[in-house]
Amino acid sequence: MASTAKFWREQAARYNLEGTRCLTCGSFFFPPRAICPRCRRKGEIVPYRFKGTGEVITYTTVHQAPRNLNRQIPYTLAIIRLDEGTQLLSEVICDPEEIHTGMRVRAVFRKLGEEGERGIIYYGTKFVPILQT
């Protein structure tokens, strides 16, 4: 897991999906970019908070996890396309047999990890299926 200071610097992105948007070409970026790769110096980058909804593009179920995530196996990681268009990698909290390509998901606030019993607890965004009512 990242150092305490590094995680603190990334807190807004991890807690609230705060990325950036280029007003020149309309592209969205997550994690946030300081420069638009398409518009370069013509780009105008502004902060943007993503709505937190999207769909699963592809996924994999993890059965052999790093030591600090051993308790959580099996868990599912997915590439999610946010509704604004950009993609990110996140855990989707559901039974492994429940997930499927195209599944609608929404962001939730969960523990991402912790630095042992004495260290910092890392919080941030994971995703859950949007239940059809």
Binding site: Q72, V108, K111, I121, Y123, K126
Partner: peptide, 16 residues
Amino acid sequence: PDLDEDTATMSVEAAR
């Protein structure tokens, strides 16, 4: 609670 839920995560969900 789920394995990654605690008082802070549940507080945030209710507050949101």
